[in-house]
């Protein structure tokens, strides 16, 4: 029994490899994204259908994309990691403390931050695997512990003055009008997709998530794979933290924690598209930008903030529900 499971992808109805339902499910979210763009573009074309609008949307959501990708790895292996947002915040704060307050060179700082993310992954993995504690409990605990560390090292204060080199390489330098942060997220997404689809370790990760006992009987070192998935999540979350510090030029001890639920939302919404029934990078990528496209449209229209929450929460539930209807309500197990 795996800890996190989505239903298996539905086979083509006629066995020929093509099914309208399967196609609709795979690309339904992409269609919904296009629909949102058409809708808000029709309502307010002068503001919404501008390159500056799309470039800011693409650039500003890179952090969420990267964090979601980090989350996907342990989810694919059947584990939750509730510490990803805390790791991201710790990483951003370490950048601020080491670089801005203590004057460390940026490269040294980033190396230490990434290594710290890896260490957090090791700690999560060891507690889950050696002590046989559910990942939900372990990562809830380590996340809270990390939050305490962040408050400690920051003195509960926001710290500014992060190197402009980092700010430039995250948000200021652009290609085609879009900040580099977007391309980092895009490259990471493509790399993770390639890893999961076309490499042996990636397939083993998937097998472990689908059925640990079967994977173990097949000769896969299940614990090893799960440990590495936590480490990968820690490293990726640290990278998200570096982007976060580069985006704002500062770090504060709390605000980044609010990224946790949107990351989970994007991961689960993404699991309904592109490769339905499986956590997948491109699905999550589309999910993030589907949601932000809608929210941006609402914001440009000047609606109250609560309407954004209605769209975010409602969009998530409705999209997943429609996906379930397409797959004839096959059960989704998150045991």
């Amino acid at each position: 029994m795996t800890a996190v499971e989505t239903a298996s992808p539905p086979p083509a109805a006629d066995g020929s490899g093509f099914s309208i339902k399967a196609f609709a499910e795979r690309f339904g979210l992409l269609g919904a994204w296009a629909g949102v763009i058409v809708l808000f573009g029709a309502i307010n074309p002068d503001a919404y259908l501008t390159w500056i609008n799309f470039s800011t949307m693409f650039s500003s959501q890179a952090i969420l994309v990267v964090l979601t990708l980090g989350l996907l790895i342990p989810l694919t292996a059947g584990d939750f990691d509730l510490s990803v947002a805390s790791t991201m915040v710790l990483s951003a704060m370490m950048v601020a403390v080491l670089n801005a307050l203590n004057g460390w060179p940026l490269v040294h700082t980033l190396v230490v931050v990434v290594l710290t993310g890896a260490l957090i992954g090791v700690v999560n993995g060891v507690f889950v695997l050696y002590f046989r504690i559910h990942s939900l409990i372990v990562t809830l605990g380590t996340g809270t512990f990390i939050n305490g560390v962040v408050l400690w090292i920051s003195g509960s204060q926001t710290i500014g003055g992060v190197s402009m080199d980092l700010v430039n390489w995250v948000i200021v330098y652009r290609i085609g009008g879009i900040s580099l942060s977007f391309y980092y997220a895009l490259i990471l997404c493509a790399a993770l997709w390639y890893f999961m689809e076309f490499t042996s370790p990636g397939r083993r990760l998937l097998f472990v998530g689908r059925g640990r006992d079967v994977a173990r009987l097949s000769g896969i070192a299940v614990d090893h794979v799960r440990l590495l998935s936590f480490v990968a999540a820690g490293v990726t979350s640290s990278f998200a933290g570096i982007l976060y510090a580069g985006m704002t030029g500062s770090a504060d001890p709390l605000s980044g924690l609010t990224y946790l639920l949107p990351a989970f939302a994007a991961a689960f919404l993404g699991a309904t598209s592109i490769v339905p029934g499986r956590f997948n990078p491109w699905g999550s990528f589309v999910a993030v930008y589907f949601l932000v496209s809608g929210i941006t449209g609402l914001t440009i229209l000047g609606v109250d903030t609560f309407v954004q929450n209605l769209f975010y929460g409602g969009g998530l539930v409705i999209a997943v529900a429609l996906s379930q209807l397409v797959r004839k309500r096959q059960p989704q197990s998150f045991s």
Binding site: T50, I52, S60, S255, T258, T296, T299, G302, T305
Partner: peptide, 23 residues
């Protein structure tokens, strides 16, 4: 005027300002 509840500062202020500037 844009109201952003405190817990959402990290995720909504930036996007709200961006949208306002685009609009």
């Amino acid at each position: 005027y844009v109201n952003v509840p405190v817990p959402e500062w990290g995720t909504k202020i930036q996007s709200s300002v961006q949208s306002a500037l685009v609009a």
